[in-house]
């Protein structure tokens, strides 16, 4: 390596690559961290939990270690009626999203409100906690922030889950895991574009809609409709169920795969599902040998498909 040119070259290379890193990493991220989370951003952060992909709390991606999103119309502590509200229940041991662990990821103003008014720094994931999104005025604007309801309203996780009951609970965080695991994002995007297609798929997201979410799973290769607002276009559970079991039941030209295996072994009544028979009957139906397709079984209350449906329907 005796040449002087190589020394100069190595330094030039360091400067070039360093400069490039400065511009493409340091500048953008220091710009992005200034963005304050929107209300929707906070809702997503709280309902998805710490991470939407592989994590040590859920190494096999079964949807474990995730919060439950519930809808309440009564205060679970006092039993008084309240305006319907979403609460995000973190049973003991479920890790918090970074908006709670590192409040500044939600933006400066939101972080301040969430700690002073919302008292999120008093939450302890070993004991579990319940969060809600609240609003306050800051700097002349109404801003959403996170409120630690286990402290401010004395709600405890189990109490809230019992008060809501299964029909008002949604496993949105676990459903996001299913979405990532099953590779829905290889065909569907979660990003209506800023140019044209928001007219069909709804508003494109804003800068502050993602704080504390990971992975964002935008998707890049769209072979199917954008799903960011699918829950507002179509909120029929019945349709979704048939569509997931076999998309060609409701849309004969669809190229979406069947996700019947997400039903698991047993249906809602604990009876084993006979997939072979179902498929055989469907094949007859598709060949015109049957008038009606076979019935789609109801899913069990804690099945992969339940999680996924809760997630998809939460995309408003």
């Amino acid at each position: 390596m005796a040449f002087r040119e190589y020394k100069i070259g190595a330094r030039m290379f360091g400067a070039a690559l360093g400069g490039s890193m400065m511009i493409t990493l340091y500048f953008p991220t220091s710009d992005i961290v200034l963005v304050g989370s929107t209300e929707w951003g906070l809702q997503k952060a709280l309902s998805y939990g710490r991470i939407g992909g592989f994590s040590y709390e859920d190494p096999l991606m079964r949807g474990e270690g995730k919060p439950v999103t519930v809808t309440l119309d009564k205060d679970p502590a006092t039993n008084q009626p309240i305006d319907p509200i979403h609460a995000y229940v973190y049973p003991p041991g479920v890790p918090f999203p970074s908006a709670i662990n590192h409040p500044r990821t939600a933006g400066k103003v939101v972080a301040e409100l969430s700690t002073t008014k919302g008292r999120i720094n008093e939450a302890d994931h070993q004991k579990g906690a319940v969060f809600v999104v609240a609003h306050a005025e800051a700097g002349g604007e109404v801003t959403a922030y996170i409120e630690n309801a286990s402290v401010t309203r004395n709600w405890n996780p189990q109490q809230v889950l019992d008060a809501a009951g299964d029909e008002n609970s949604a496993y949105v965080g676990s459903g996001k895991i299913m979405f990532v695991r099953e590779g829905c994002w290889w065909c569907h995007t979660l990003l209506p574009e800023q140019t044209q297609d928001w007219q069909v798929f709804g508003v494109p997201p804003r800068l502050g809609d993602f704080n504390s979410e990971s992975p964002t799973a935008f998707g890049s290769d769209r072979k199917a409709p954008d799903l960011l607002h699918v829950g507002s276009r179509n909120s029929s559970k019945e349709w979704m169920m048939m569509h997931f079991f076999n998309p060609r039941l409701v849309q004969p030209h669809s190229i979406m795969p069947r996700f019947d295996y997400l039903w698991g072994k047993n249906d809602a009544n604990g009876k084993p599902i006979d997939f072979d028979q179902w498929r055989a009957e469907y094949t007859k139906y598709a060949a015109g040998e049957r008038v009606y397709p076979p019935e789609v079984p109801d899913y069990a209350p804690k099945s992969d498909i339940r999680y996924l449906m809760d997630f998809v329907l939460s995309l408003k």
Partner: peptide, 14 residues
Amino acid sequence: FNLTGLSEAYMTWW
């Protein structure tokens, strides 16, 4: 490091 949000999205494409 569990970086989140747009930084995560940007780093994916970076």
